[in-house]
Nucleic acid binder design. Structure first.
Lengths: 216, 216
DNA sequence: GTCTATACTACGATAGAC
DNA sequence: GTCTATCGTAGTATAGAC
């Protein structure tokens, strides 16, 4: 295993710090020292705090994108591809606890960033648009084909984001609610099953048998 | 209409600023001047930034609590009381756009607050525990009575929080997804219907007729 | 109850030596 | 590519006059 380059080390530390404290809550001194550098050396790799932040976001979105591309390329029917997208999304968010927090925080920190219309910001926006558009298209395809109820694709997508991104971003509060760690392999497996079943069958008593994973 | 006292004015401005920028992103200079005061005068009303923040949170949670108490006192069956709780929660979150953002941000900013174990922090924790516990109890009651599928109450509660708190906190991103403002009376009405129907029936084609509001 | 003045620390960012 | 030194600003908080 090669040691990380300075740039990679900075990105790694910055991802952890931004996820935990948010953009405004992170100081570059602290960040630099955790990366084993002086503060000024940061500016050799990234011209500003905002650029560094966007680079972190971009990397995280790319990781998710790669996982979801596999699900979208699946030959199955719409319901199957939606299930596989949920699996991929949950796996991607569960891979690193920083991911969901970073993404959820990013939704709030748009106006705090002094970096609109930079190339970095446009790359991040494009990745988000791709993810959102693909998932929404999948839901819409299902309703138009008659496989799903006549739900609003946008509303359903938002609920799905809440059920996944919010869930894995919920931190100590979420662990308190769940009564166990959010990121254990078993907990992640169960989250996938619960979300897929709720999406399929809703809360009320089933008229079809639930998925096998939900048997308890 | 009486003019606001300084304390009330500060709370109002602070709620807006903390919702928009987060705890670390708000400066007390800026906050004070928006409230029409000098920076130092803040400290006459609140001994520290953390105390002010917790006072804001407490007020927001109290508003929600009052709405939900009505739903919990309803004489209906479990499914009805859950529907009414969702209505009350959505109405409470939609009443002021700051509410959902503040609550969602609060989940992340626990460790950034230098104010654990103060009376203010304990009050906030108690209010959250009441809200969470009551909603979870309602779901559990439904599964035990056989009205709901054998879902995990904790998982379902988290999904419900995502579908409501995250939704109304999603800001510009959410409006982009929805293609319209989140807080218009019509949009709020539709969100209630979509969430209740998804909770009831799931996404797949209904074997029972959907609620009347979902007819499109 | 609000003000001015001030203390001390940290912030993001830059200049320039090595 | 990393460092020290420095700039100007803003951060929370306190003291004390009015």
């Amino acid at each position: 295993m090669e040691p990380l380059s300075s740039r990679e080390k900075i990105l790694e530390v910055a991802e952890a710090r931004f996820a935990q404290r948010g953009y405004a809550g992170v100081g570059l001194r602290e960040l630099a020292s955790q990366a084993g550098l002086g503060k000024s050396s940061l500016f050799h790799h990234f011209p500003s705090k905002a650029t560094l932040y966007l680079a972190v976001l971009d990397r995280v979105l790319l990781r998710l994108e790669e996982r979801l591309r596999v699900a979208w390329a699946s030959p199955g029917d719409v319901a199957t591809r939606l299930d596989q997208s949920i699996d991929a999304l949950v796996d991607g968010l569960a891979e690193q606890p920083t991911t969901a927090r970073l993404l959820l925080r990013a939704l709030f920190e748009d106006d705090a960033l002094p970096a609109e219309n930079t190339p970095e910001a446009r790359s991040v926006d494009a990745r988000i648009a791709l993810l959102v558009g693909s998932l929404e298209g999948l839901i819409r395809e299902g309703t138009e084909a008659g496989a799903f109820r006549a739900v609003s694709a946008a509303h359903t997508l938002q609920t799905l984001i809440g059920a996944t991104v919010y869930y894995f971003a919920s931190g100590a509060f979420g662990e308190g609610v769940m009564g166990e760690p959010l990121f254990s392999a078993e907990a992640v497996r169960q989250r996938k099953a619960e979300v897929k079943n709720l999406i399929r069958f809703g809360l009320h008593r089933p008229t079809q048998p639930p998925l096998e994973e939900d048997q308890r």
